[in-house]
Design a protein around this nucleic acid. Structure first.
Lengths: 404, 404
DNA sequence: GCACTTACTTCGGTGACCTTAGGAAGTGGC
DNA sequence: GCCACTTCCTAAGGTCACCGAAGTAAGTGC
């Protein structure tokens, strides 16, 4: 029934370790403070911290001011205790970044993908990962310590992905069916690989390192060629019964026009990138936005209507889920100021009274690397999320004993 | 951050006890079978079962057939080990039932509520609970054993409720603001009281005792005067950041008409009970349905359109959440066969390809007691749900040591 | 320098789990 | 009727992570 099981006591320790790490992500804290925040006893915190120190995941920093007694020893996550690589796979390119444990980018690389068949894409990813991999420093080098291990790789792509198994059920632009991408990559790379839908990578990033830190109910709407949606509900990324939740772009919002999915009146057929280009007669989104900014009434009307329709759709989403935060992301945010007035107006009028008050809207600054960083964040999220589901056993872990 | 904490080991035992109980709700099982299903070791299962036997929550039944060895001793939940009372509060009446631990109704009662002020309603509920309460059997009576304790009371009403605290933030039909209904009732009744939105009571019932048994992602849509929605996501009832999730009735689906909430084009203003009555010119829903059944073209068209609009709205819900099951409930289901053709057609065309395959639609047989039974189910759900959140401590429990 | 405060550690005890071994209660062959 | 074999369950002992209580370390302030 409920897939929750607490079997061995070792699992408790792992959960509590993750708990402490999650608190430490927020800033410098003493053992005593950690104990207060988590509700664990001081001896337990001390013991777990000792383990983390030994493993090199955490370090002692300067002491804080005393309040009339012994100074507290502040602990901090050692951001460079290890690294993670994030890869965004697109139709034509793979974009990769290496980040530290705070999702800070320390290296970047991109490669073209000549064709979209599985072996080609897998080869491109493995090559990119090898390029990004931290070089083992020469023995005795001063940098040897700083360059920690590669914990794993996160991969994001457009499509339906079964994250637990890492199998791509169906990619949006290529004809992939049930491709065990995580398995293929793990075999070649020798590190854990997590694969997920690309919007979910953005969500993971917001949840752990962005505007969604500490927010347990939020939605990320990505605006671009398609309209994507990722949700954090009750503190967990929500994926739906079959991993297919978040088909926001195929919400039916009008009578026409036909959508590539075979349906009619889909949100993304109405306000997706191609629709905007067609209606403004431009070749790129930036051109269309420039036209509107130059004062062209027709183009302005198009963006205004896009905003209004999106506002209603997001408003309905809020009515259903009552999130605390909506993040707007994706390349469409480059035209954010053109869309916002209409968006805000219809959002306000759509949302049921009372759900508005605590609702926050954030536009995420968007750049090409965001997706790749999101993929890294996806993996980091796995490291920090306490694991309560044994069927997800074998997950990567900062605290696993086997790692030592 | 994550409110999950595993502190004391006692919590583990409580979780695992709930796990075993949850399995036993599915049928008769031996200790060995329980161990296999839960992944716990046999000695652990035996020990927990011994506790449950002693507490009278579980009983040994006949032995099953041997497979060439010692016969397994089958264990069963003792449905009459205790009772629960469920109350549905409406504008004019309070409806109550007493059920056993399988949500089977063993007694029923109803009382009029002369006015909707808080003291009057509280008095009506306490009176109803006292009437339904199992009578303490005379000492030495044979029935003394069968009539177990009253574990608690569940209350459902239309409005926004903070379930954790039992405070009614806002009732739909009365002018209640921040009424600590659970606290008031617990003070008078001396048993734990859980209060929730009435649609959530239906959800709890479906989740634990109805079509949603074992389904971790589902939605219940209640059709009546208003249109309600309750969701189980990832195996948990989802309530939103502020407890306000599920405002399905205020989804914006059209340009008109005005809704009581102050918005325009709300789903429930378009297809709610009053809208149907207005458009068919009838006084009751049953009259309107009878008119349609008699062949009246206008009335048929109204129901058909109601079905189509509802189908699109539910289709969009499916696109967002990818549930495995949709339950249609509420008094509107009395006209289910009039609505279904239109509903099914638009649902099919709205739902994104791929999410349809495993989607199941169930119409719940609806009667006046369903809401009250739901409220009882709400409380029973609390008893069976493994509790991983310490901030919900003090929750009612079948296995709490303090109860012995 | 001495009282006091605060931060952390050490130590012993408890509880829940597991593994291993063993008893109980069946079936089936001879 | 006995003996091997199977299956279900219990008993005994060990491990691990937690906690509370007491002790040590390292400050401040008079």
């Amino acid at each position: 029934m409920q897939p929750v099981r607490v079997g061995s006591k070792e699992l408790i320790r792992e959960i509590n370790s993750s708990l402490l790490l999650a608190e430490l992500r927020a800033g410098l804290l003493s053992r005593t403070e950690l104990a207060k925040r988590t509700g664990l006893s001081l001896p337990t915190v001390s013991e777990i911290v000792a383990e983390l120190l030994q493993r090199g995941v955490v370090e002692e920093r300067e002491t804080a001011l005393s309040g009339g007694g012994r100074k507290p020893v502040l602990l901090a996550l050692k951001a460079d205790a290890g690294f993670v690589i994030g890869i965004k796979v697109t139709e034509t390119r793979v974009i990769g970044v290496r980040t530290d444990l705070n999702a800070g980018i320390v290296a970047r690389a991109t490669a073209a993908v000549p064709s979209d068949d599985v072996p080609t894409v897998v080869r491109a990813i493995t090559k990119l990962v090898r390029a990004l991999r931290p070089k083992p420093a020469p023995a005795g080098s001063a940098r040897a310590q700083a360059s920690g291990p590669l914990y794993g790789v996160g991969v994001g792509l457009a499509g339906v992905v079964d994250r637990a198994s890492g199998v791509v059920r169906h990619a949006t632009y290529a004809d992939w069916r049930d491709v065990d991408l995580a398995g293929l990559l793990e075999g070649k790379l020798g590190v854990p690989v997590v694969v997920d839908n690309d919007v979910n990578t953005l969500v993971a990033n917001e949840q752990w390192f962005g505007a969604g830190r500490g927010v347990s109910d939020m939605a990320v709407v990505s605006i671009g060629r398609g309209i994507g949606l990722g949700m954090v509900l009750d503190g967990r990324l929500y994926r739906g019964a079959g991993g297919g939740a978040g088909e926001f772009g195929h919400l039916k919002v009008a009578d026409g026009p036909d959508c590539a999915c075979g349906g009619r009146g889909c949100l993304e057929a109405v306000i997706g990138g191609p629709a905007i280009l067609a209606r403004t007669g431009q070749r790129t989104l930036d051109d269309a936005a420039a036209l509107a900014r130059s004062g062209d009434a027709g183009a302005r009307a198009v963006f205004d209507e896009v905003g209004r329709i999106l506002g209603t759709a997001v408003g309905n989403l809020v009515n259903l889920l009552n999130p605390k935060l909506i993040v707007l992301a994706g390349e469409g945010t480059r035209a954010a100021e053109l869309i916002r007035p209409g968006f805000d107006a219809t959002l306000r009028s759509s949302v049921f009274d009372g759900l508005q008050r605590d609702l926050e809207i954030v536009v995420d600054e968007w750049d090409d690397e965001a997706w790749a960083r999101g993929a890294a964040g996806l993996f980091l999220g796995e490291l920090f999320q306490p694991n309560l589901r044994p069927d997800e056993a074998g997950r990567p872990s900062l605290t696993a004993r086997s790692a030592s």
